[in-house]
Design a protein around this nucleic acid. Structure first.
Lengths: 212, 212, 212, 212
DNA sequence: TATGAATGAGACTTCATTCAT
DNA sequence: AATGAATGAAGTCTCATTCAT
């Protein structure tokens, strides 16, 4: 606002290049997720991004701000990537199993799992990160869809669900918790069969609990 | 070769002091849990333990071995601390809620939560740690007690539980997952009321699902 | 990749100061020659050069590279210092004695002798150094001049020399070997008289062997 | 003398074991020759010898004394190993060539070459070593044999040698100097053919110079 | 006498950050 | 705005030596 006017004829006073900023964030994301916060050096980030070190400091101030920017950015991307497909075939067990599988697939994908580990690790050391994470908690598009699904089932009499939000959260947490344990927090791959089993067990529990 | 050399073998004269070893582990535990692996310096550990740096290296070889020793030791302590109280009042909902509360209390206690965060953070960087953790998974005394409880309920006709192990795992995971999210992975305290609510919600789900 | 990054390439703004590099090499040369490789700390080199430690690492990467740079540099200087004075008075014994004295003077001068000792000591530990030294062997300006001198004598009929290169090498090696032994590898000074004796003995042997 | 009496019946007051001393020297010799003085740790020596560290200090006082003991010991062994075979076939060139080959073989053998490099490297740092080496210089059995050989040749009129000692020294130095340069101070092997060439060139020079 | 646990100093190297250009 | 050379602090680990047994 103060620097990017539209008037003609000003000398080219070298604006902070958004392209470089993006390159830095991309490089930092890769390295942070791969190696963790402390293990990643600003030098390495600058080199990976192909920029000078001062450029990094110019854009982000210090290493911590850059880290927070990376977390924020990555979270935004993930959120956007949550495609809202949730079939309603009239068979709650099948539908919820499928939904849980999608949850697993999303959360255990390498970058997201890495972000999760990284966030947990750095949580106590960056108060700002706590605020960031707290704000996000529960505001998940997928969970909202599952909530709606439970509401529909209740309306249709397929299930009897008093608190659809709670049910959606339970399905999600249950699936995730077991998925994370089985894959050593996302460091090991999850076979299709195992993923299905986990999702099915969770969905089955919910369906049984809420059978009319 | 290493013990006898040229002359006849004589008994070793001086042993590595177990007291110093314990002091080092205690100091390392405190600092690692507090600050994380990378942020903790061996210098600081030695100072905290009141020993020389080389004493640390003499006992553990390098920082990573010390770290693994800390994890192992802490895990052992936790396991031992799991007192096996699990009431059977004939009211599954109440009993399982109480059990879940105990789970929460144990796992969200500051040192254990810190160890959990630390372990997750370092998992990708220490293959040995993965092995350690994998071996531990599921071999939990508390879970076994809950499993037995479900079996009893099934036998008594209070609940209908085909797979008691699965049920116990589900109760545990569900409780833990929500507890961890709510406390920001154990970095924030959990009020008694909130703890009860979480435990109750989970226990309620299980009981409903398995009602005869 | 490393030079352009995202934006358009701009000329590098700040160059590694050649003055600092030179100061580091000078300091390292002094200390390495004085104390040897292992005994010399990078800290001490940086202090002697009046720069920060990282400046040393920025310029040379690690201690070994710095060491090789020192050897290379010192060798270059020596080579350059070899002034090509080799009188031809028509008296081979006198001329070759004088030449041998010059060889002695050059090779037993404290810095060059020290470099020689240092190189020999480190040869087995730095393969790169072996390559460096192998390449240098025999490419000595002084030896070439002596070779020419022998050729001239042969042409003039003063001596009968079939293999002038061999003769030059023999004069050089013989002189050096005895000079080094007598001075304890250059650690002790060599009196003028002794130097003359050594040079004369060697030259005399060559002249006698090649008398027509 | 004061401690190793022969009288019977003294209580076994634990004498300094000569076997351990020998083991320490052997271990130290191996490691010093292999890695150099600074690079070899007392720890490693004690481990290699299979004794405690204090035993090393008990026997030798400190690392430097141990080093000097190693040099002294190794020198003694070499000296002893110099078998005095020097043929006299009446053909000076052949005999001296053979002698020079033996010199080469001895001096360029890996352990002796290593000792030579080590000694040169440490010469400036251990004044005691200088004294040790100075005393030894020229007191070489092989050289004495060659000296005698030259005297015999002179007596028999095969050669004309005024200073047989000088001639022997020249043959030795010349051979050694070239041999050392060619093998990079004994770090590289010397082919039989090359060894012969070097010895022959040196012997030839001497024979020519002293032809009657 | 012999052991090896323990020490304090110091080794090489890398870090986040600033400064001169 | 952007570069990367330079800094000073701090990192992990090893050393020669001593001390308690």
């Amino acid at each position: 606002m103060s620097s990017s006017g539209v008037g003609p004829g000003r000398p080219p006073v070298r604006q902070k290049s958004p392209a470089k900023r993006a390159a830095i964030v991309a490089a930092a994301t890769k390295l942070f997720l791969d190696q963790g916060y402390e293990r990643t050096s600003v030098d390495a980030i600058a080199a990976e991004a192909g920029v000078g070190k001062q450029t990094v400091y110019g854009h982000f101030g210090d290493k911590e701000q850059l880290f927070l920017a990376v977390v924020e950015e990555t979270r935004r991307e993930q959120e956007a990537a949550l495609t809202g497909v949730l079939q309603d075939t009239g068979d709650p067990l099948a539908d919820l199993t499928a939904a849980a599988e999608l949850v697993l697939e999303g959360v255990l994908s390498p970058p997201i799992a890495a972000l999760h580990r990284l966030t947990i690790a750095e949580l106590p050391h960056h108060p700002e990160l706590q605020r960031l994470w707290r704000d996000r908690t529960g505001r998940n598009r997928r969970e909202e869809l599952i909530t709606e699904y439970f509401r529909n089932c209740d309306a249709k009499g397929l299930l009897r669900v008093d608190d659809a939000e709670l049910a959606a959260r339970q399905l999600t947490y249950l699936t995730l918790a077991e998925g994370r344990v089985v894959t050593l927090q996302g460091t090991q791959p999850l076979s299709k069969a195992e993923r299905h089993r986990i999702a099915h067990d969770a969905a089955d529990l919910l369906v049984r609990a809420h059978r009319p």
